[in-house]
């Protein structure tokens, strides 16, 4: 089996070389038509992002209900953001899912969110260590109360030109955990102080938003 596949892989490299994706325009124009029925916000205008949104009714101002494709968690999705389909990943057995979404042509700080779910990492200590490893600087997690029966731990870090908020979400009796990474940066060509002045507000908003991420226990599905 594997031999055939390797050979097939090579054959495909040759076969697929020089492909042209000429059906792209078609699908985009059709989605533009459909988009008219949806709210006039970035999240709904983007076809890929729309696949995750459960309703056109906002959960609260500026957010729409998001359900992950693993079915492992829900959250409020910011209306001005778009999921990057190139970096989205989910494994076939639904044991991991990585969603990366970003603010578009922002006047304030540019924000990237990574929300990553792993069903096979249970120990919160592993989660905290991995997050700290990936951020590369020492961070301190603080537990924050949430609306749900789960544990949310948040930490902040600063780089020279950007800041970040990371979090770990775990729940007793539910396998797996969510690790989130949010980075905020001001563009070089923007009035530095205007943007920097907004960073703290944005951080508060992100910390509040993190509370909306809810791990779903298998039984309650």
């Amino acid at each position: 089996m594997k031999v055939k596949f390797i050979v097939a892989l090579f054959m495909t490299i040759f076969v697929l070389g020089g492909c042209n994706m000429n059906n792209d325009n078609e699908s985009k124009s059709s989605s533009a038509n459909e988009a008219k029925e949806f709210p006039e916000v970035t999240a709904f205008q983007d076809e890929f992002t729309r696949e995750f949104l459960e309703s056109t009714e906002p959960t609260r101002e500026g957010y729409y209900p998001f359900l992950s494709k693993t079915g492992a968690y829900k959250m409020d999705f910011p209306e001005g953001m778009k999921i990057n389909d190139k970096s989205y990943s989910i494994d076939p057995d639904k044991n991991s899912e990585v969603v990366i979404f970003s603010s578009q042509n922002s006047n304030g700080p540019f924000i990237d969110h990574h929300v990553e779910y792993y069903s096979f990492i249970n120990d919160p200590q592993h989660g905290r260590d991995q997050i700290e490893g990936r951020v590369g600087v020492e961070i301190n997690f603080e537990e924050v109360s949430t609306n749900y029966d789960q544990k949310l731990e948040i930490a902040e870090y600063e780089y020279e030109n950007s800041s970040g908020i990371v979090s770990l979400i775990t729940k007793d009796g539910v396998e797996g955990q969510i690790q989130t990474f949010s980075s905020l940066r001001c563009s070089n060509d923007m009035e530095g102080n205007v943007c920097k002045g907004q960073i703290e507000d944005e951080k508060a908003e992100i910390k509040n938003w993190l509370k909306s991420i809810q791990l779903i226990s298998k039984e309650s599905e």
């Binding site: 970003s102 603010s103 540019f110």
Partner: peptide
Amino acid sequence: KNEFSFNNDD
């Protein structure tokens, strides 16, 4: 991002 002066991951 610093090196290539851009702001969003994609």
